[in-house]
């Protein structure tokens, strides 16, 4: 028997790691991976709450979050490729214009 709060604490730690990575990292791909880490933390809390309330909707929502995350990853990485092609860099400090 494990309290639900343990799962929520783990999910919070993962989300916090994602936020910190988003803020301190300078490589655009690593920043993108931090976003995926945040999504994973949220997914864990969805599954934990589904177990708490005995309702499967939480697990279905995790499925939807994964689909959206996969779509986001494909579009985001395509944008990264486009940015790299025009700027020749992955350092976000040198990417300060939205215009290509």
């Amino acid at each position: 028997m494990v309290p639900i709060s343990y799962y929520l604490i783990l999910s919070g730690i993962l989300f916090a790691c994602g936020v910190i990575g988003f803020l301190i990292k300078r490589n655009i791909i690593t920043i993108f991976m931090s976003i995926e880490l945040m999504l994973n933390g949220v997914n864990l809390s969805f599954v934990a709450f589904a177990a708490q309330w005995h309702h499967l909707s939480g697990q279905v929502f995790v499925f939807f979050v994964m689909v959206v995350a996969a779509a986001e990853a494909s579009v985001g990485l395509a944008i990264i490729i486009a940015v790299f092609r025009t700027r020749e860099t992955l350092n976000i400090d040198q990417v300060n214009l939205l215009k290509l």
């Binding site: 929520l8 919070g12 589904a50 177990a51």
Partner: peptide, 18 residues
Amino acid sequence: VLVQRTNTPEVPLGALPG
């Protein structure tokens, strides 16, 4: 907040089979 609210229910192994 987490310390104040430690009375969350405990779940057994495989609580909600999906």
